[in-house]
Design a protein around this nucleic acid. Structure first.
Lengths: 344, 344
DNA sequence: CTTAGCACTCCCCTAATAAGAGTGCTAATT
DNA sequence: AATTAGCACTCTTATTAGGGGAGTGCTAAG
């Protein structure tokens, strides 16, 4: 779509104005606020052309224009200038990640908190997945005669724990012995490697304690499983009520009902391009109830391996430049924190 | 307030009808649905009296009547019949608690999930607090040269963990030695006992590793602190949109803004009577923005010690009987689970 | 004491009207 | 040939007015 300079300027003005005001944009307001050096009548002619091209549309005969989904797409791809967070905002974001603890729940919580402070959109957070992390230590802590806590530590400093049931009549020594064997055989391996290949090997050494081992492997697998199922965490639901499109309850309900479907959210986040910040606009999301929304997302990684995604969901009228800056920056520091290259 | 039988019947009819319909109740609808054997005119006379007593009120001259805050109070205290959950509902609730793991995050999550499934109100959950739990084991797991995971297990099977920074140049032996000393001295004591009395004692034994000990005690105290600050967890925010009073966005915003203030929620839950299910109606909450809401709450305990509260927040027009049954039942099984008397 | 009957009040829905914003077209201007 | 001033036209939104209806309060009769 080859647009001459002025058409581009008009489209840009319409998108940016509508992002701010959430109202249809009139020719006169463009002439006033963006000095294009032409009269409203000229702008009206350009608008008429842009509408014919499908880049903008008119809510009704005598209203201003609103960007269409292709219009936003054109804007994001060709007109929008990339922005960065202010150094103050970057400081806020870094401060929230300053904790060293890499317990899943903590990291998720601070990430969501950070991102909700930086935007008024709904935050979608997937992962992090342990799949590619190498095991460092497995520890067991007896709790009761028939329960023990299994703690798993990865090379990347990731800590997960879970309570397991033990078969009755298990000596304390047994547990310790198992722990030793597991540590010897599994150290340095990733979880898929553990569960797929070496398992039989270890079973031989531990025939006596097979039942316990089974339980512990169940835990390891459960942890993996959780990550394959990839729970999606949500945040900022209050925030999004600040957006003017959610002034009637029907819109809120519609939003709520569709974000309750985790499967959909997962599918949406999975469409994120691992190599750059991804923007999905309206129908591009490919899911009817989400037609009025957009998602800006970016992956984060541990030591180069993608482990999760941060997404921002908002109305199509999103501040794309800002949303992109936020997810880019937060996935960046999250990757650093998780990879252990923290710069604090 | 001595009400004759018929006045009580009329009040009961008004409250129960309004709880169901959310609309003002007319004399005629009472005569039709509740067979009191009198005409609407007679009921109107009674209503007039009830209004004079302040138990019901009229939104406007030609509307039916709506219960007032004292009216709900009278109903809850004197008219309402206590109900129980159906056995099917009880099964649902128990199933969700069937997991053995007593990791804080898990218990909180299943509790909230359970209660949101049983009601359409907002769920407030405080605690559980470790304050009164006796220590069973402290374990340390080295992660990196300068970080370790500290795991604390209580006699009640409670597990908490946190990552601590270590001073540089600490030998692995040191950590193990500290662990031993701590376990020897602290086993069986509650956290307040630990931090208040014995501390100096242990310090003598561990002069060499004082720095590490300081760090570990910081963690113990942080855990206590967290519980003194008593985080309030929320659930069911979507649920409450089902209530007809929240069909306009202003009501939703009002609700949202006041539940964002954790201090208030904490104060409200703290007013729960530890010996029975507590109902706070409208202005009884003693907080202006909450004047239109009610809270039904009940505490739960570990081995007889109160450790937390479950509350349901909804419009004044709440189904009190049901809400009371829900919090009573869930705090009951929660106490059992936490005290280790699980009956599964 | 109860109740039928009726006037009265107030809400809520609908239709009608006015005001306003913005366009599209035409004709004049550069 | 492109731009623009001017104006008629359209559609929305806000306001007002009126009718219908629900429900009460009062009065007088049972």
């Amino acid at each position: 779509m080859g647009l001459n300079t002025r058409k581009q300027q008009v489209l840009e003005a319409i998108v940016e104005s509508h992002i701010i005001t959430a109202e249809p944009v009139s020719s006169r307001s463009i002439a006033r606020k963006y000095r294009l050096g032409v009269s409203p009548a000229t702008i009206r002619n350009e608008m008429s052309d842009l509408e014919e091209m499908g880049l903008i549309e008119q809510p009704h005969t005598s209203a201003g224009r609103v960007p269409s989904q292709p219009g936003y797409r054109y804007y994001v791809d060709r007109l929008m200038k990339k922005i960065n967070l202010t150094s103050r905002e970057e400081r806020i974001a870094r401060a929230l990640f300053a904790q060293k603890a890499k317990v899943l729940a903590n990291v998720i919580q601070s990430t969501i908190k950070t991102v909700t402070q930086l935007t008024d959109y709904l935050v979608l957070l997937s992962g992090p997945q342990l799949e590619n992390a190498a095991l460092k230590t497995i520890k067991t802590i007896p709790l009761t005669p028939d329960e023990a806590l299994v703690v798993i530590v990865t090379e990347t400093g990731w800590v997960e724990s879970k309570v397991v049931d033990l078969p009755s009549g298990l000596a304390a020594d047994d547990l310790e012995y198992i722990e030793n064997v597991l540590n010897t055989y599994f150290r340095g391996l990733t979880f898929p490697q553990i569960s797929r290949t070496i398992l039989n090997n270890v079973y031989d050494k531990l025939i006596k304690q097979r039942q316990v081992l089974d339980r512990i492997m169940e835990v390891v697998e459960a942890l993996l499983q959780e990550n394959e199922d990839e729970v999606i965490y949500l945040g900022g639901a209050q925030n999004i009520l600040k957006q003017p499109e959610y002034t009637d309850i029907a819109a809120v309900r519609n939003l709520m009902s569709f974000i309750e479907d985790e499967g959909i959210l997962r599918r949406i986040l999975h469409k994120t391009n691992p190599r750059k910040v991804t923007v999905m606009i309206g129908r591009e999301i490919n899911y009817d109830p989400a037609a009025g929304y957009s998602v800006v997302s970016s992956v984060y990684s541990i030591g180069g391996n993608v482990v999760g995604t941060i997404g921002l969901l908002g109305p199509m009228r999103m501040d794309y430049a800002r949303a992109m800056a936020v997810v880019e920056y937060t996935t960046g520091i999250l990757s650093d924190v998780l990879s252990g290259d923290a710069f604090f």
